[in-house]
């Protein structure tokens, strides 16, 4: 599974994307973020306030309780500020 990070999330984690292999008990977006936070201090810092995080699964906006089954690309980012 490929994970993409944007804006300040990308800067805090220190990379724009990575390939990950989460354990089987990671079935939703919320599970994935909880698992990422256990990996290293920079992830814990980046995901400290999850209310400031939005998610897209295979380039479609999704919720934290969305299942990851069959998903190839997960994008995590702050609320958008274009226009």
């Amino acid at each position: 599974m490929r994970v993409l990070y944007f804006a300040w999330l990308r800067e805090r984690i220190g990379m724009g994307s990575e390939e990950i292999s989460p354990p089987d008990n990671v079935t939703t977006v919320a599970d994935l973020i909880a698992w990422l936070k256990t990996r290293e201090a920079r992830y814990e810092a980046a995901f400290g306030d999850v209310t400031a995080i939005r998610v897209a699964l295979d380039q479609e906006q999704a919720d934290f309780d969305a299942p990851l089954t069959g998903v190839r690309e997960v994008a995590l980012f702050p609320p958008v500020t274009g226009g």
Binding site: F6, A7, A56, Q61, V80, T81, G82
Partner: peptide, 21 residues
């Protein structure tokens, strides 16, 4: 567009300070 399209703005001031909007 402002609430759904995935764009992010970062402000840079004259002295080089950067801040995400």
């Amino acid at each position: 567009l402002k609430t759904r399209a995935p764009f992010w703005k970062k402000e840079v001031t004259a002295d080089g300070t950067e801040e995400w909007v």
